[in-house]
Amino acid sequence: MITRRNFLKSAAALLALVPLRAVAAVWNKAAFAATKPEAALQGLGITRPQSSSEIDLVAPDFAENGAIVQIEVESHIPNTEAIAILADKNPTSLIANFMFSNGAIPKLITRVKLAETCELKVIVKVGDRYYEASKNIQVAVGGCG
């Protein structure tokens, strides 16, 4: 017989079986759908990022083709947990959010699309503190078609 108590018990047991990873791995639709950087940051729970010289952001000053712009990001801030990448002039601001664990170095190289000349911004998460670095990139032909 299914009593409320038994139901709750088994529901709790089931929940306990779901690995944490599956819960963390829900795509952050609110953040990625945001058309303004402020809204994207809000979607990620990022508050008051401080500018930091401990973040390396390597990207071209001038991008001939906005469809493929290679960027390199490295955080030298101890205990960096995540790096988010945003472009203020893209149709949706948030490009990616990378979360590091178990010996991953907070450093990555990837290729992004830039719709037009913009401010490329990276935000580093360290516990509940946030740090940022940005770079202006001139884009000749936009790549967000």
Binding site: F32, A96, F98, S101, I105, L108, T110, K113, G143
Partner: peptide, 25 residues
């Protein structure tokens, strides 16, 4: 053991390329 988890939007270029780095491997 998970070392990197990323969420991407449409701003990652076609045929995505990613380099990442690990210590203690």
């Amino acid at each position: 053991k998970i070392v990197l988890e990323a969420q991407w939007g449409t701003g990652i270029a076609k045929n995505p390329y990613l380099t990442f780095y690990l210590k203690d491997a």
